[in-house]
Design a protein around this nucleic acid. Sequence first.
DNA 1: CCTAGTTTGTGCGTCGTCACGACAAACGGG
DNA 2: CCCGTTTGTCGTGACGACGCACAAACTAGG
Lengths: 401, 401
Amino acid sequence: MRSPNLSLVLRQLRDQGPRSRARLATDLGLTRSAASTLVAELEELGLVRTAGVERGGVGRPGSLVEIDGRAVCGIGAEINVNHVSTIALDLSGQVVAEHRLALDAHRLTADEVLDKLAELVRRTDADVRTVGATPVGLTVGVAGLLDSAREVLAVGPNLGWRDVPVGAGLRARLGAAYPLGVENEGNLAAIAEAVPGDATRQDILVIFGEVGVGGGIVAGGRLLRGHQGYAGEFGHMIVEPGGRRCGCGRVGCWETVAGLRALLDAAADPDDPVRDPALSLDDRIAEINRRADLGDTRTRAALDQVAGWIGVGAALLTNALNPAAIVLSGYFAGLGQQLRPLIEEQLQAGVLAPYSGGTRVEFSTLGFTAAVRGGAAVALEAVFDDPTLVAPRAALVGGTR
Amino acid sequence: MRSPNLSLVLRQLRDQGPRSRARLATDLGLTRSAASTLVAELEELGLVRTAGVERGGVGRPGSLVEIDGRAVCGIGAEINVNHVSTIALDLSGQVVAEHRLALDAHRLTADEVLDKLAELVRRTDADVRTVGATPVGLTVGVAGLLDSAREVLAVGPNLGWRDVPVGAGLRARLGAAYPLGVENEGNLAAIAEAVPGDATRQDILVIFGEVGVGGGIVAGGRLLRGHQGYAGEFGHMIVEPGGRRCGCGRVGCWETVAGLRALLDAAADPDDPVRDPALSLDDRIAEINRRADLGDTRTRAALDQVAGWIGVGAALLTNALNPAAIVLSGYFAGLGQQLRPLIEEQLQAGVLAPYSGGTRVEFSTLGFTAAVRGGAAVALEAVFDDPTLVAPRAALVGGTR
DNA sequence: CCTAGTTTGTGCGTCGTCACGACAAACGGG
DNA sequence: CCCGTTTGTCGTGACGACGCACAAACTAGG
């Protein structure tokens, strides 16, 4: 019984911010004495600390309790076509370490890619330990379809992988020091956008656009994985029957009209430098923004066309899911100002519920760290689920400053 | 702490069926003594009883504990275009009472419809009490968009209602004898299909077809309502840009190609008796089945066309949600044998995940009672959440037989 | 400056609930 | 018929939350 209430207190501090023990007690329906002992225990575990006092009101001021993130870290990792990367977030969400390695997955075997990622994870792990924190878990995001056990990549069209046992492969390289999870990239990006405590971000739809279009659904603060873990494959919804052929072999997939390639096809000739894959995506997006701002007709038309199709798909999903917000991530985010008006227009036009069911259109600010951040968050969730699994008095040598 | 564990035991008995106290203990991670006291308390509340013994194994046979549904009932109700209806289900899911009143919502004011429904509820309530059970809640399904408070019907296109305070209106007529909820009809139908304990029915997509097409999403056994409660409006997903005009004013909505009207338009001339609205829906469906079985070309072509479009929409949603099953309800259910092949074909063709992500196509067997059954289930859920809110020793006069 | 009032945090006694161990009961098998 | 096995119940103990009381720390107001 201790554990559930510890979990409750820790989550309350994460979601609602620092507060006094008395406030915790009333918020959670506990007595002040119970809140006190629970906080004391969390303090013992090194997960919270008292910092400052609550001034201003009448009566004795409360001493504020806040999450002390330094004791534990979650590690997120990502395997993408152009890079592998990792991040370590402490319990309060601060970045403790970050690594990134550019590569071309097509020119490497899956084993080679896993080798490189494992090396990055080892470095991240070492970084975490040098600041005195304990890693509590690792979650790896992969661009592709992961089956329900979420350990084997069934199909990774962009990576060119089939039936790769990502989970087992990494466990073999890293040992079983801490729990390892594997998850779809779009799903992890969605988790990253669902910031805890922000009530407007607990029912969201994240649409992640690069060459492909993917995403994830968060409902009631929890990721919707679907029966076998394949939820969130928005890019292959058929929105234009008889339209363009998609890389997946079908015709009319959403990503053929809303993906990066659709934009570039419409906005630039094949020899246009903005299409040079050697340039970074950020640079290419910046160039498109520049042209649009200068009023280039072709660029604006291309953006309008893509925005319209984004809106069509967003409206489909909004009719089905009625999210509080649709968060556009990936290449969409950098073009937010250009895309927003037509997306919103299509949403208004295509959603049955009045005022688009209150669904807002937002653009991610996490850039390309969304997936790794989501992975770290998943790993940390284990601590929020059961704070007692943190080694008691982990590294008291450092002491509380 | 008592309450959570009581809830756990009761749910286990519902989901996994009758079992001995020892089995309950091992399943739930409790000790046999704890399980014993919990069962004794539930017995005291009149919610479970011991029935029969567990024969066959070695050792002392356990006495089976099972849910005794008779003490409490949940009431479900429905407001539809052609009828209002109610049902009372006891805790074990048995039908205790059922009422139905045909009417034409267009020829009545909302107040008049609510009057008639209230009368039906009062009768249902009386039926429940005459068998010695206590009603624990009422949930009303309405065909239309209900805002997040789920008490005001924002738009009910088929009913011709706008901004009708269904919740307040019924409360005024019925008093506050027990909790009253209002929910979208499609959502309740979805809950009814997600039978507790059936692991293959905890992540499902229910598509309910009449003239309109609606439905609901159950993820992880819980209804997905969306931010403001508007989730599940599948019928107005635009699947055929530039297609037919919909009653909602837009063009290309799914229900214009998959709804009952689309089938009838394709299958029969305007003066064909099968289109006579005076006939019951069941009779019209039977006639279409008869013609299809006889090999009528036009009927089969119409069915194939509709099935294809159903499959297109189902594939869209399956890419997004990866449900374990898509349950087709309403008029779709009666035509299951005719529709299945092409729906499955489209699903295979339109879903990215291998083998359609494992999603099965199923047809509802609940007929037009799905929504009211779901409503009753919602009301009963309160008892499973907290068994102690049942009046202790409600009606022991009846005794345990 | 001092007092009254308010709110916070902690300590103590009590109670409820579960875990643990023991024991009688009820069955199958040799 | 006896033995091993499993079930259900009962006592004991531990653990955590509740209720209450009390000291501490602050504001407000004269």
